[in-house]
């Protein structure tokens, strides 16, 4: 019995950067964060911003419906064959962190069926502040919170806020209505994350998802370099 990895087998095992046929696989970016913070809206906006320049697909992890996948389908941000919903058995963080097999199957099937792909966005089912993606599933992760969830969330920290490759503070347009102090959120995020980047965005304004799209392009350039 040998316990080293085999690279000549018929199906890729988790994080391997190459597909079984030897080609480079797509970059996989996870989007996590609390329910309602704007993950699906960010995914939709990213698809609109990037679909003309990249070959894209999306995996959603809904908690008990196919709502997110259906929203993306209705919004027609991508053709239906590029959107897959994974069922998470009442435990969204398990499916992105502890047992990633169903998600890996989804990303592999997408690459087999609509590939070659440049980028796959994996949206988590929405969970608490401790839910992060396994490195076996994604190459980078974005944690999406919003100003309406309380401006003390960056201060509280937690694995998502502290360690995500990009922290997005969404719905800045709502800050005046909910009394959130954006300056304080920025300072707290900086204290938690040191040099890791933070983007403040409102999808209701002209700039929209622009900063996040730029960050994704940079990641992709590094991935294919």
């Amino acid at each position: 019995m040998h316990l080293d990895h085999t690279h000549d087998g018929p199906a890729a095992v988790s994080a391997d950067a190459h597909r079984p046929d030897g080609t480079h696989r797509a970059l996989r970016i996870g989007l996590g964060g609390p329910v309602g913070s704007g993950k699906t809206a960010t995914v939709a906006a990213l698809c609109r911003a990037l679909r003309d320049e990249l070959s894209l697909a999306v995996v959603t992890n809904d908690i008990y419906t196919r709502e997110d996948a259906e929203f993306l389908l209705r919004a027609a941000v991508l053709p239906p064959e590029r959107i897959t919903a994974v069922e998470t058995g009442a435990c969204p963080h398990t499916a992105i962190r502890d047992d990633i097999s169903a998600n890996l199957e989804a990303v592999e099937d997408l690459e087999d069926e609509v590939g070659p792909l440049d980028l796959i966005l994996v949206e988590s089912g929405g969970d608490n502040l401790t839910a992060t993606f396994s490195k076996g599933l994604v190459d980078a992760q974005i944690f999406v919170i919003d100003v309406a969830g309380g401006d003390d969330i960056p201060r509280k920290g937690g694995p998502g806020v502290t360690t995500a490759d990009l922290l997005v503070v969404n719905k800045t347009d709502l800050a005046p209505y909910v009394g959130s102090d954006l300056g304080r959120m920025a300072a707290d995020a900086k204290a938690q994350r040191a040099e890791l980047p933070v983007v403040f965005q409102s999808l209701r304004t002209e700039a929209g998802v622009g900063d996040v799209a730029r960050w994704v392009r940079e990641r992709l350039a590094a991935w294919t370099a």
């Binding site: 316990l3 990895h5 018929p10 199906a11």
Partner: peptide, 18 residues
């Protein structure tokens, strides 16, 4: 199969996966 090929790899599992 995916989990087992990472934990207890074998030619037999590769063949079944194929």
């Amino acid at each position: 199969m995916r989990a087992a090929r990472a934990t207890w790899p074998s030619a037999e599992l590769d063949a079944l996966a194929r």
